[in-house]
Computed example of a mutant assay.
Amino acid sequence: MKNEENKLIKKLKAGDEGVFKRIFYLYSDRLFVWAYKITGDSLASADIVQDFFIRCWEKRDILPDKCSFKAYAYKSVYNASLNYLRDNKRFVYGYEITIDLIDDDVRDEDIEELKRLLLKAIDELPDRCKKIFVMTTMEKKKYTEVADLLGISVNTVKVQVSKAYRILKEKIG
Rank of each mutant, 00 (worst) to 15 (best):
V49N: 00
Q50P: 02
D51M: 10
D51R: 13
F52R: 04
F53V: 08
F53S: 05
F53Q: 02
I54G: 11
I54E: 13
R55W: 08
R55L: 09
R55G: 10
R55A: 14
C56I: 11
C56D: 03
C56T: 11
E58Y: 09
E58H: 08
K59T: 08
K59R: 12
K59N: 14
K59Y: 12
K59A: 10
R60P: 00
R60C: 03
R60T: 02
R60V: 03
D61M: 13
I62L: 13
L63P: 02
L63K: 06
L63A: 06
P64A: 13
P64H: 09
D65Q: 15
D65I: 07
D65R: 15
K66L: 10
K66N: 14
K66E: 12
K66H: 13
S68N: 06
S68C: 07
S68W: 00
F69Y: 06
F69T: 03
F69A: 00
F69M: 04
K70I: 14
A71Y: 06
A71N: 14
Y72G: 01
Y72T: 04
Y72D: 01
Y72A: 04
Y72S: 00
A73G: 00
A73T: 02
A73W: 00
Y74E: 03
Y74L: 05
Y74F: 13
Y74K: 12
Y74H: 10
Y74P: 03
K75G: 09
K75V: 15
K75A: 14
S76L: 03
S76V: 06
S76K: 10
V77I: 14
V77D: 06
V77L: 00
V77K: 07
V77T: 08
Y78N: 00
Y78W: 15
Y78T: 09
Y78A: 07
Y78C: 05
N79I: 14
N79R: 09
N79V: 11
N79D: 13
N79K: 15
N79F: 11
S81R: 08
S81Q: 06
S81K: 07
S81Y: 07
L82T: 04
